[in-house]
Design a binder for these strands. Structure first.
Lengths: 150, 150
DNA sequence: TATTGTTATACTCTATAACTATA
DNA sequence: TATAGTTATAGAGTATAACAATA
């Protein structure tokens, strides 16, 4: 038998799958993969930064950043500019097209949020957010103690 | 500015990241990747099946299934058994060790669900599940109309 | 000596296309 | 002729290790 807790977790996973597919599809329409979009998003948030900074922010290796940036340069989304004071480093900078794409991602995010939560009853979003906060605290407090599946 | 809807979506994404990391870590401890665990899970649910069936269930190509099953055979989790009536097909079957691992995944899932939802107030899980159902219906009803980011 | 980014190499997941053995 | 699974090839994301240029 399945407990109510298991049912909830299953439903949550189902939502994640559907949302992920939706997002991936939207990104593909913009010519992006998930990882490359993540880089673009970071640049959108934090302006031109070094690859080292991206490596830390995305928590992937510097080598990996090289590959992602290569692809984004090929796609015309970003350019490598010289660092003004450190000749070892490069400043990854959004091109005009890259900035437009990032703006489209932000708009898509807003639309998705409204589409998802717009029809909840008054106070529903706030309550849902509060529950998510509780779940986040739960999982973070006991982090390190096992966990598995799918 | 960020709307309440955007904040909720952001929080949901945060939860997804933390949950994913937790699961991936648990699976790694069992010697599994996400994709291989998915195969094991399907076998746990549906008994010995052909690779073709797995291909349909996981929605990946037959070629991909070959690779995943190869890895699971190497790890001692499953074996390829002859199909009783169709000599083209193989029945992918859990080994003793594979069945134990699948049981461990199921147990981990139960533990995680209890850890997450166990401390919600009475009726809280049911309400949360109802909201998730609503969100799922929302996203499914409007599927096909754009969406992006991360 | 430490840091930035690269080349070299490798593993996993994924896909398409061509092919073999069987239905 | 169609289906089950494989080999061949390719691309994306990830990692470690060794190395160059610069701090």
């Amino acid at each position: 038998m399945m407990s109510a807790n298991e049912a909830a977790l299953g439903r949550l996973q189902e939502l994640v799958v559907v949302l992920s597919e939706d997002m991936e599809q939207g990104l593909a329409a913009l010519g992006l993969t998930r990882s490359r979009a993540h880089v673009l998003w970071e640049l959108h948030r934090c302006g031109p930064v070094t690859q080292r900074t991206l490596s830390d922010a995305l928590r992937v290796t510097p080598r990996n950043v090289t590959g992602l940036v290569d692809a984004l340069v090929d796609g015309g989304f970003v350019s490598r500019e010289p660092h003004p004071t450190d000749r070892r480093a490069t400043l990854i900078t959004l091109t005009g097209s890259g900035a437009e794409t990032a703006a489209a991602m932000a708009a898509g995010q807003r639309d998705l949020a409204d589409q998802l939560f717009g029809s909840l009853p008054p106070g529903g979003v706030e309550e849902f957010t509060a529950t998510l906060d509780h779940l986040l605290a739960q999982i973070r407090s006991q982090q390190g103690a096992g966990g598995a599946q799918r």
